[in-house]
């Protein structure tokens, strides 16, 4: 996987526009079998306080999660992170909501992927396996933590990286174009760094 970096000057409004890619979904490397909490803590570098008090709505593979310690990641998992949402349905979707029974048919029950649950998958094996999960960051989570995540780098397919560059109005870095020209359906780790003022 190639690394590419886009540097923006401080205060550049294009950084805000770049954040939009976070709500549509991006890739992050993770350890197979790690829980949603571990992922947020170790990969996204969220603090425990932020996880407990701000990340109140979590979806794993389109299912609302109540217990982020029992929600285990697998190759191709989709993890969506949101702050508390308004209205009755917003309240229903929150972690540990008293209204959780209203959506029990779709609640994530802590079932992990086959690899994590199978007896032959020990901790050593899981640690040795790196996977890519799709992450979505919404609303204030995107606004608060998005810049940091972008600066550390996200995994995107080359085509989407080009779309992102077009959307925020910057010249496509040569590295991306080279990938496309070669016809490779490859992934790259893109970081968007804002220079200090």
């Amino acid at each position: 996987m190639r690394d590419l970096e886009i540097a923006l000057p401080a205060g550049d409004p294009r950084r805000e526009e770049a954040l939009a890619v976070l709500q549509a979904g991006f890739g992050m490397e993770a350890r197979v079998g790690m829980s949603a909490r571990e992922f947020m803590r170790e990969v996204l570098l969220f603090t425990d306080d932020y996880i407990e008090n701000v990340i109140s709505t979590v979806f794993l593979d389109d299912k609302p999660v109540d217990d982020i310690d029992r929600a285990l990641l697998a190759e191709g998992s989709r993890l969506a992170l949101s702050a508390a949402m308004p209205g009755l349905v917003g309240a229903i979707m929150r972690r540990g909501s008293p209204y959780a029974s209203f959506r029990e048919a779709i609640t994530h029950r802590g079932e992990g992927h086959a690899g994590a649950d199978s007896p032959e998958s020990g901790p050593d094996k899981e640690e040795a396996t790196t996977i890519i999960v799709t992450v979505k960051m919404f609303n204030s989570v995107m606004r608060d933590r998005g810049p940091g995540v972008l600066a550390r780098g996200i995994v995107l397919a080359s085509g989407r990286a080009v779309e992102l560059c077009d959307a925020i109005g910057i010249d496509t870095p040569p590295g991306i174009s080279q990938g496309l020209d070669s016809g490779e359906a490859n992934l790259l780790r893109l970081s968007i760094v804002v220079s200090p003022a």
Binding site: F59, P64, A80, P86, G87, V89, G90, M93, S140, R143
Partner: peptide, 14 residues
Amino acid sequence: SFGTNVLSNIINEA
């Protein structure tokens, strides 16, 4: 910050 339409992403996710 985002209005009532802040719900779209998460209701879609569900």
